[in-house]
Simulated assay, not measured.
Amino acid sequence: MKLLAALAFAALLVADLVSAIGVVWARHESRVLFVELTRLQNTRDELNVDFGRLELEQATWADPGRIEQMARSQLGMVNPPPEDVELIQR
């Protein structure tokens, strides 16, 4: 009977140790994943700032006034004279 009680005690002790190690491992993994999540959120925020800056830059480059100015100065484009304009109706 004492042998059976000693084996049961040993089994419970091993189960307790395994459970404790499992809890420590799970908490460690949780912390590692939280750090990774925080890093990814910071990266996302930085990318959102860059995206907003690039959208503003694109809007600046695509401004119709700027495009017209570039067409006139670099390409030598001009508005056609009124006699060369033809209106087409559907």
Rank of each mutant, 00 (worst) to 15 (best):
L33H: 10
A10R: 09
A62D: 09
Q74C: 11
K2Q: 12
W61H: 13
E86T: 06
L75G: 09
T43E: 08
F9K: 08
G65M: 00
L12Q: 09
E55T: 03
A71C: 00
G76I: 09
T38A: 08
L4I: 15
A8S: 05
R72A: 15
E86K: 06
G52I: 04
V35D: 02
L17Y: 04
V49F: 11
V14I: 15
N42H: 07
R72C: 08
D45L: 07
L75S: 06
I67A: 05
V78E: 12
A26I: 14
D45Q: 12
L13G: 04
D45K: 04
G22K: 02
P82A: 02
D16I: 08
H28F: 07
E29K: 04
Q69P: 02
L3S: 07
S30K: 06
D84C: 05
E83W: 03
Q41G: 02
F9L: 11
V32F: 07
L12P: 00
A5H: 10
R72Y: 08
E68G: 08
R39L: 15
L4Q: 13
K2P: 04
E83F: 13
A5T: 11
E83V: 14
T43L: 09
E55F: 07
Q69R: 06
P80W: 02
D84Y: 00
A62N: 07
L4K: 11
A71W: 10
L3M: 09
A8F: 05
V18F: 13
T60G: 06
R66S: 06
F9N: 01
M1A: 12
L87C: 00
L12N: 03
L13V: 11
A59Y: 11
L13E: 01
Q74E: 10
I88F: 13
S30Q: 03
L37I: 14
Q89E: 13
E29W: 09
L47N: 13
E55A: 02
R39N: 03
R39H: 08
